[in-house]
Amino acid sequence: MGEARGEARGRLTEARATLLRLGGKRFGPPPASVVATLEGIADLVRLEELTDRVLDAHSWGELVPDAAQPG
């Protein structure tokens, strides 16, 4: 059971890293609010959906609109 949890955490970490890497290449470095929002997502399917949308979005704000924007 612990092994399965560790594997799930690893997959989440990998999905976040992929999303941040691809998004960073497209939009530039993510704001801290985006990183915090992505770190708070514990649903692998949601992270994969966001990764799929990287090519369709025009900015981090469009990709992750629920991230608190500084202001």
Rank of each mutant, 00 (worst) to 15 (best):
P65S: 00
S33M: 07
P30V: 05
V64M: 05
F27I: 06
P29V: 00
A42W: 15
T37F: 12
E7Q: 09
G71E: 12
P70C: 07
D43H: 12
T51Y: 00
D66V: 05
R9S: 13
S33K: 05
L63N: 10
R16E: 07
D66A: 12
L38K: 12
M1S: 15
V45S: 09
E3I: 05
P30M: 07
A57Q: 11
A15Q: 03
A8P: 00
L50M: 08
V45F: 11
D52W: 09
L20A: 10
D66Y: 05
V64Q: 03
P65Y: 01
H58I: 05
R11P: 01
L38A: 11
P31D: 12
L38C: 11
G10V: 02
D52S: 15
S33G: 15
E39S: 03
E62C: 04
V64S: 08
L44T: 06
A8N: 00
L55G: 12
R16T: 03
G2S: 12
R46I: 04
P30R: 04
D43E: 14
L47G: 03
R53A: 09
T51I: 01
V45G: 06
A67F: 08
I41K: 11
A32P: 03
A8W: 01
L44G: 08
G2F: 11
A17E: 14
E48K: 13
T51P: 01
L38P: 14
M1L: 13
G6L: 07
P30D: 06
T18Y: 09
A4E: 14
R53I: 00
L55R: 13
G10H: 01
W60S: 02
L12P: 00
R9F: 04
D56S: 15
V45T: 14
T13W: 07
A42G: 15
G23E: 06
R46T: 10
S59D: 13
G10M: 00
G6C: 00
V35M: 10
G61Q: 13
I41H: 09
P70R: 15
L63A: 12
L47K: 11
W60A: 12
V54I: 14
L12H: 00
P65D: 08
A57H: 11
E7G: 02
H58F: 04
A8R: 00
I41V: 13
R21E: 15
G40S: 08
A42P: 05
G61D: 09
E3H: 09
L50F: 03
D52Y: 02
A42R: 15
K25Q: 12
L47R: 03
R46W: 07
G71I: 05
E49P: 01
G61H: 10
R5S: 07
E62F: 00
L50S: 02
E3D: 08
A36W: 02
S33I: 06
R11N: 09
A68P: 00
T18D: 14
G40F: 05
G61Y: 01
Q69R: 11
S33P: 05
A67Y: 04
A32F: 06
